[in-house]
Write a protein that binds this DNA or RNA. Structure first.
Lengths: 357, 357
DNA sequence: TACCGCAGAGAAAGCCCTTTCCCGCAGGGA
DNA sequence: TCCCTGCGGGAAAGGGCTTTCTCTGCGGTA
């Protein structure tokens, strides 16, 4: 690889001058030298060594992001929001997938710190794991102590700036909807127990049921991976144990899609025999058939906010922005089969407009 | 941030010794000093400056990847394959999204070169744009001249190692299937004209139709963005122009899903009134209803191969690995409405097993 | 006892840039 | 004519790490 001094030598100038030309320094350089340098750069196909630059320059510019999995639509949307703000400010993003492995998360914090990122954003559920939480907080504190900025999305265990989707209210809205439709035998297809997202959403759901005088026994909950196959599997276990279920609440949309696959395989009509409600409103939710009734989270906005927090002026006290959840009624949630008798003859709810195109 | 010499000072050793302990150098260090260094590292929460390390070390280890968009399932799958091999070999991946912008692609090649990556992988369709192709090849050649390794996935314009999905045969298989089902009025929902993937798939399709004595007039093709909304829009334009279409070939699954949305909005039954065939077999294809008939590409394997090429021993001559496409029959392609009369009474094809769970 | 070899530690030379500091020179004012 | 100013350029000092080279002191052999 050609180096700066190769360029300087070829142009017959000092490395200092070459550097100034290449970086558009404010220090003036005569046109003749400038041209010679530029010509040398082109001839040698010179590209500055980014590591040497970052070492020599003092200011840090890149931002590190740790998500569970960018290819998961939930994180893809959040990342889109992060990216938008970062790009506007000319920041490079380093994105790392933890695949929900706490140890890997810790490692990535170190890695990104080592890469001298100006800020760090952790997105995705926290863990019910005190030892881990403590370690993470220590590492983040150490990072912040050296001037690094930190924000988290969707995890309350960190004491700094945070953007929090209102998971609990989301669960509540879904629960209220299902209760309102007359469902009593509601099964829950849940993500891993250890995730705070799981327990928060569950808590909201439980509260909604409690308000109607119902409870949510553990036997009506199945914990599995937070993805399509996990949802399919959990739904199957749920139905095996309790064939009379009239509704399934899936704690995210991927799981809901898996649950729909299970119901289809068992020829249980949705929503006539079993209703399904998802969570997150990922883009694909409107494209499955029937279109998925779900709880929308402003995912892109969550990313935008988090990046803005971290790139904006630091605050004296930690800021927490709670973003609202919203119920999106589509076609997978209908009246409970026995409740339907009361409203006999009423056709299943017409397809919602937002599913067309 | 604490530096290595901070650690050394605190441990009462030289930076050289500290470095040796921290990196597990083969040079022996007495246990006592080792412990002192480790203690200092822990107390200072020391993390080595990655840029300084990369600058000081001679060997390059990271691998750069340029894709159109990782959050697109097509690339997410490929990336999964890349990641698998890279992780096995302890390589870090730097992934960049070009968002199908050739200029950005060029910039990223420079960026990654600047970051001293050991290899570069470009995934995703090439462009029908000679100026761009020439520039890219120049840059890649310059990079290879300095010892960098390069592989491309799905683009034939680069002269080096390549992994090529058999887009043309895939198009051919889809075309033969539709012809076999009696379709003659076939519309195509195509990606951007400028992408070689579009033209390759189209060429295969055209060939299949030609073998049956049919042609594919331009008025039956609509070009749009290679995503869900592009597919929805193109399908709408296609149906507006020619309401008698009995089949739609979408040049990727995202577009197929958009086309299904349009058909649903217009109450055109799939596959009874209109058949749809997609391309790629992304994971979601089996979960839409009806499940999508499509052409499968071994996406993960493509990633695995490309990374293996680039991390393995260099070959004297460029290698091209062509990976086969395979037709996956599910539920969106059925007999053409007029052909159906011939097989009157035959129920629509039973749901394929692979859609259950 | 003299010498050799080696283990274990440190000194110092890079790796490739950026940027401050300094120098020479030409032009303008006194 | 002399001095000051300011412009354009180069020298050199880092930035934080790795690694080679060098040095010291010890045990072992002849």
């Amino acid at each position: 690889m050609a180096t700066l001094s190769d360029v300087a030598r070829r142009a017959g100038v000092s490395p200092a001058t070459a550097s100034r030309v290449i970086n558009g320094s404010s220090k003036p350089v005569t046109d003749e030298l400038r041209e010679r340098v530029l010509a040398a750069v082109a001839e040698l196909q010179y590209v500055p060594n980014a590591h040497a630059q970052l070492l020599a320059r003092s200011h840090r510019s890149a931002v590190g992001v740790i998500v569970h999995d960018v290819s998961d639509p939930y994180f893809a949307e959040i990342t889109r929001g992060l990216q938008r703000v970062a790009t506007d400010q000319g920041r490079l993003l380093m994105i790392c997938n933890s695949y929900r492995d706490p140890d890997r998360e810790l490692e990535y914090v170190e890695l990104l710190r080592g890469h001298q990122v100006a800020a760090l954003i952790l997105a995705g559920s926290g863990y019910h794991d005190d030892a881990f939480t403590r370690q993470l907080n220590e590492k983040l504190a150490a990072y912040e102590a050296t001037g690094g900025r930190v924000a988290v999305i969707g995890r309350h265990e960190h004491s700094g700036d945070a953007v929090m989707p209102d998971n609990r209210t989301g669960g509540y809205l879904a629960g209220r909807e299902l209760c309102g439709l007359g469902h009593r035998a509601i099964g829950v297809v849940a993500g891993p127990r250890i995730l705070t997202t799981t327990t928060d959403r569950l808590a909201g759901l439980r509260q909604a049921l409690a308000e109607q005088g119902h409870d949510l026994p553990e036997r009506r909950i199945r914990y599995a991976e937070f993805d399509r196959d996990g949802g399919a599997e959990a739904a199957a276990r749920l139905l095996d144990a309790d064939p009379e279920l009239t509704a399934i609440m899936a704690l995210n949309d991927s799981m809901a899609i898996g649950a729909l696959a299970t119901l289809r395989a068992r020829s249980l009509a949705v929503p006539h025999r079993v209703s399904v409600v998802g969570f997150d409103d990922m883009p694909i939710a409107r494209d499955v058939t029937p279109a998925l009734t779900t709880v929308r989270l402003p995912l892109v906005d969550m990313g935008v906010r988090a990046m803005s927090l971290v790139l904006g002026a630091p605050a004296p006290a930690p800021r927490v922005e709670v973003l609202p959840a919203e119920l999106i009624r589509r076609d997978t949630a209908g009246p409970a089969p026995d409740a339907r008798r009361d409203t006999a003859g009423s056709a299943p709810r017409a397809r919602r407009g937002d599913t067309a195109l």
